[in-house]
Amino acid sequence: MDPQLTEVSQLFERFKAAFIRNDYDSCANLLSQLKVLLTKFRSLPPLFENTPNAINELLLAREIYEHAVVLSVKIEDQDAFERDFFQLKPYYTDAGSRLPPSPQEYPILGLNLLRLLVQNRIAEFHTELELLSATALENPCIKHAVELEQSFMEGAYNRVLSARQTAPHETYVYFMDLLAKTVRDEIAGCSEKAYDYLSIDDARQMLLFSFDQELLEYIKEEHPEWEVKNGFVFLQKAKESAPCKEIPSLQLINQTLSYARELERIV
């Protein structure tokens, strides 16, 4: 066996041991060493040279990056997640035909979809979705993320929140928690427009707080324009007047002048 490959796999074993011990500091340390070592393999992307050990090297590298992605979730570092995921992606797309499928593939792809959803990058979410095959879409991990997006777009926030219990993978919980925060902001935004007032109890339930105190603090920080009075939260203090009485003269003058100029050019 190639000495370089042995070295990397030994280091990787140590990484995995630290990973199981939840010793994330030494994990991160070992990971950066591993990444440096991986650059010496010529069979990995972007070179994809056909060396004799290519398959073994690709498999090892794929596993390392899979662990790196999961690690980044555990240390709650979204930027690292993005970086590691993009490094991992060619192993699924470009080298996919040469390697046996990885059991981690769908959970990680689903995790990435969830991340895009949390960061509200919906366009990228759909771009990623187009890359998935019909069988991938049937996978519970992917389906979970897709259904979340749908409920999110519809406004069925209860379904988004209850999805936390059905998370298909332990790593999903981190993003689901982040999502819960996004959902609360969304609900607050919607309620503001939809209700004139709410009782404090209802508002607390709706915004998913356990205590009135939390709700009041949230209102103070995020929505200081809401008014709390007599056990009610008034969401819209003044209604905007719909009909416009005034004539927007300046705008009209500008428009008319531009018509005149254009017509002159035609005649």
Binding site: E154, G155, A156, Y157, N158, R159, E186, I187, G189, C190, S191, E192, K193, A194, Y195, D196, L198, S199, D202, M206
Partner: peptide, 22 residues
């Protein structure tokens, strides 16, 4: 579900209505 869907539709301007939670 209906309540939150309606609330979102109101916010997005799809319908012009208000909700009465009580």
């Amino acid at each position: 579900d209906a309540e939150s869907i309606v609330a979102k539709a109101i916010r997005d301007g799809a319908i012009d209505a208000t909700l009465d939670h009580a």
